[in-house]
Simulated scan of single mutants.
Amino acid sequence: MSATHTEVPSMLAATLPTPVAVGEYEQCPVTDVLRRIGDKWTVLVIVLLGRRPYRFNELHRGIQGISQRMLTRTLGGLEYDGLVNRAVFPTVPTSVEYSLTDLGRSLLTPLSAVADWAVSHQAEIAAARELNRPAIDTLDV
């Protein structure tokens, strides 16, 4: 990007074909990451692991409403993507500890920016939702 366009967000500066092809959208690395972090539990798990490592049961107890199966799936997906490290300790019974990798820790900064934006604009979003509620209720989906 040239020095004259430093104020343009990278998402807006990127060239997109129109219409955007389904295959291109599906293969987009941004779409891929947003799918991973956009589920119900992933951001919370990343934030908790960003504070310190957790053993599985300790993490499970720390998140009300998540099932063991869903926590296992969430941690497995994060491990698969290289964001979480799973360490097994040869104790009786076996202990498993989860922590963020360097790659996972690097995600904390952009997630924090989104969180800060959401908190800063919470009232505006709530007001817009209230104002637009009748329009949404009448949509024929």
Rank of each mutant, 00 (worst) to 15 (best):
T31R: 12
T31P: 14
T31V: 15
V33E: 09
L34R: 06
R35K: 14
R36I: 09
R36L: 15
R36W: 06
I37H: 00
G38L: 01
G38A: 07
K40F: 01
W41H: 15
T42Q: 01
T42Y: 00
T42K: 04
T42D: 03
L44G: 15
V45G: 06
V45I: 15
V45D: 06
I46Q: 04
I46R: 01
I46F: 05
V47W: 13
L48Y: 13
L48C: 03
L49C: 04
L49K: 04
G50Y: 09
G50N: 10
G50L: 13
R51S: 10
R51K: 10
R52I: 08
R52A: 12
R52V: 08
P53N: 10
Y54K: 09
Y54D: 11
Y54P: 10
Y54R: 09
R55N: 15
R55D: 12
F56T: 00
F56I: 03
N57V: 02
N57I: 01
E58T: 04
E58A: 09
L59D: 04
L59E: 12
L59K: 07
L59G: 04
H60P: 00
H60V: 00
R61K: 13
R61Q: 14
R61G: 13
R61N: 05
R61A: 12
G62H: 13
I63K: 02
I63D: 02
I63T: 05
I63E: 02
I63L: 07
I63A: 06
Q64C: 11
Q64P: 14
Q64M: 09
G65I: 06
G65T: 08
S67A: 02
S67E: 01
S67W: 00
S67K: 00
Q68P: 08
Q68F: 00
R69M: 04
R69H: 04
R69F: 08
L71P: 01
L71V: 06
T72I: 01
T72S: 14
R73E: 13
R73C: 05
R73H: 07
L75D: 04
G76H: 04
G76N: 11
G77W: 05
L78M: 09
L78F: 07
L78Q: 04
E79A: 14
E79M: 12
Y80W: 10
Y80H: 15
Y80I: 10
G82R: 09
G82D: 10
G82F: 08
L83N: 05
L83M: 12
V84G: 09
N85G: 09
R86L: 07
R86P: 02
R86T: 11
A87D: 10
A87T: 14
A87K: 13
V88L: 04
V88T: 14
V88I: 15
V88D: 10
V88S: 06
F89M: 14
F89C: 03
F89G: 03
F89Q: 09
P90G: 10
P90D: 11
T91C: 01
T91N: 00
T91I: 02
P93A: 03
P93G: 03
T94W: 08
V96M: 06
E97P: 03
E97T: 15
E97Q: 13
E97H: 02
Y98T: 01
S99Y: 05
S99M: 08
L100T: 07
T101P: 06
T101V: 09
D102K: 14
L103E: 14
L103W: 06
L103G: 10
L103A: 11
G104F: 07
G104R: 00
